[in-house]
Design a protein around this nucleic acid. Structure first.
Length: 497
RNA sequence: GCCAAGGUGGCAGAGUCCGGCCGAACGCAGCGGCCUGCAGAGCCGCCUACCGCCGGUUCAAAUCCGGCCCUUGGCUCCA
């Protein structure tokens, strides 16, 4: 079976066929960097990461682009707060750095590029001009709006009739719009002070006057880009007019993705994305997890508390397009799942190193079971990235290993080796690492190593290189590899097998 | 109100697109046994599901069709 994916556009599971049979253009709608990323974001990231890994496993060359929205009232609202930064750009930069650090901690593959709105304003202006020239957009009081009535297929992603959408438009919307459902491509003037005020955290001293936020010159005067246009401009700039896969959170289907389709297809006369995949949201007790509701756990805290492998096991415990319950119980269960896998892996590695492992022993049943599990894993992933089923396949290898080692006095060396390699290879598709090199985990050993490295950094800063080198050598004798990089020291703990 | 997704064992969560292999996977919790100095882990076995309700199609339905009830998300802040 080949890969099939559920396309929001058609509502059906379809065979996946990229435009170019060897390359996949993947765009993920990234974050507005105005708050620390929370577990809900991590859920989407991890699922996109697994898609990326699986596509590579299938042999595709994946060009993966993920944007940062660094121009937004919510970011301006943070200016002056704590040590976040003195202006919009600085606050955004602070959160982008935190976000990238969180992504590393979650063992995410890097995207090819993480474009930012602030660096693509010329492209955005070009796109808006095109839309105006083609009659899909109009200028009004220095702002530019997309005319939804000009795009026949408006509503095709979210299955809504224009009349219905229009009737839902806010009654006090700017009088400068022709239709309530029209949306801004370019907004005249500076930031909307009311919007900034609305997003300020209560009881926080931001010090001084309301911050200005960035503005740019345009054919319509000074202003800022609208929210939706950025993704169209950036995906076209870094990928192509037609994407193979566009992924995002379910909550973005309308209006954001609907608007992206309208403005992109109106501008290029080409299909904007072949497959629209949407990640479902976390379900708390009785509502979703979100920044605006304030009921979230930050990625940083979660990684510290649970570690990368447990979190990834948890986040892939359901399909990307199914809602997932977040609770202490569900995450604890994921921890048990991961530990069962990890223990079985260690059991297999230890067994391989023991004298009981014989190359002459052949347990056909064991070998076949491992092979069956691999096939089940592949089938599960090809079926719309069914990560839960994929986990089941991994767990069944764990059971086979445990049974084999438990039931026999002599082990099948080849069989065990294949099991270990299969666990490593397939585990990697889910971003799970059995070999313990993940940094930033909550391990005590990792914390201690970091402490030592902090001391060493101070020695280096003071020019005591002899002492610093001693510390590095001493760590090395313990099996801990230290490497200095531009981003500071990194370390790798020994595999304890 | 409109649009979308979903209702499966104590929990969680696959399977529903392509009806039979599903009296329903994997895991967690629970129970019994083995192993163990003890504990943990592991192994073996057990346990709990007429798959929201009603009706229809079919030799056959968790899976298809119709109606109903309920839950969740979206309807211009949101992954």
């Amino acid at each position: 079976m080949t890969l099939h994916v559920t396309n929001t556009l058609t509502g059906e599971k379809e065979p996946f066929e990229p435009q170019d049979p060897e390359n996949v253009l993947l765009y993920y709608c990234g974050l507005t960097v105005s708050d620390p990323p929370h577990l809900g974001h991590a859920r989407s990231w991890v699922h996109v990461d697994v898609m990326h890994r699986w596509l590579e496993y299938l042999g595709y060359d994946v060009r993966h682009v993920e944007n940062f929205t660094d121009v937004n009232e919510k970011i301006v609202a943070r200016v002056g707060e704590d040590d976040l930064g003195a202006d919009e750009a600085a606050v955004a930069e602070t959160y982008i750095e935190r976000t990238l650090a969180d992504m590393r901690a979650l063992n995410l593959l890097r995207a090819e590029v993480y474009p930012r709105v602030s660096e693509h304003v010329p492209e955005i202006i070009d796109l808006v001009e095109t839309l105006v020239e083609k009659g899909y957009a109009y200028e009004s009081n220095g702002s530019v709006y997309f005319d939804v009535t000009a795009f026949d297929e408006y509503g095709k992603l979210s299955n809504q009739e224009l009349e219905e959408i229009e009737s839902q438009g806010e009654p006090d919307e700017r009088a400068e719009k022709r239709n309530p459902a029209d949306f801004a491509l370019w907004k005249a003037g500076g930031v909307d002070a009311d919007a900034v005020e609305e997003h300020r955290h209560e009881g926080v001293d931001h010090g001084g006057d309301p911050p200005a936020g960035q503005t740019w010159e345009s054919p319509w005067g000074e202003g800022r880009p609208g929210w939706h246009i950025e993704c169209s401009a950036m995906s076209m700039t870094h990928l192509d007019e037609t994407l193979d896969i566009h992924v995002g959170g379910r909550d973005l289907v309308f209006p954001h993705h609907e608007n992206e389709i309208a403005q992109s297809e109106a501008a290029t006369d080409e299909e904007f994305a072949k497959y629209w995949l949407h990640c479902e949201l976390f379900q708390m007790d009785d509502e979703k997890m979100s920044s605006s509701l304030g009921n979230f756990v930050t990625v940083e805290d979660a990684v510290e508390q649970w570690g990368t492998n447990v979190l990834r096991t948890f986040l892939t415990a359901g399909s990307y397009n199914s809602k997932q319950l977040y609770s202490d119980e569900t995450i604890a269960e994921a921890e048990e799942r991961w530990e069962r896998l990890e223990r079985a892996y260690e059991t297999a590695v230890n067994a391989l190193d023991s004298p009981a492992a014989r190359t002459k022993v052949e347990d056909e049943t064991f070998r076949a079971a491992v092979e069956d599990a691999r096939e089940a894993f592949v089938e599960a992933m090809n079926d719309d990235f069914n990560t839960r089923e994929a986990q089941s396949a991994l767990l069944s290898i764990a059971s086979e290993v445990n049974s084999h080692v438990d039931a026999n006095a002599e082990y099948d060396y080849r069989g065990l080796r294949d099991a270990v390699e299969t666990l490593e290879e397939l585990g990697d598709v889910l971003g799970l690492s059995f070999t313990g090199e993940t940094t930033g985990s909550a391990d005590l050993a990792g914390d201690v190593v970091e402490l030592v490295l902090d001391v060493r950094e101070r020695e280096r800063a003071d020019g005591n290189y002899e002492r610093a080198d001693e510390l590095r050598d001493e760590l090395e004798t313990l099996g801990i590899e230290v490497q200095d990089t531009d981003d500071g020291p990194t370390y790798r703990l020994p595999t304890d097998g």
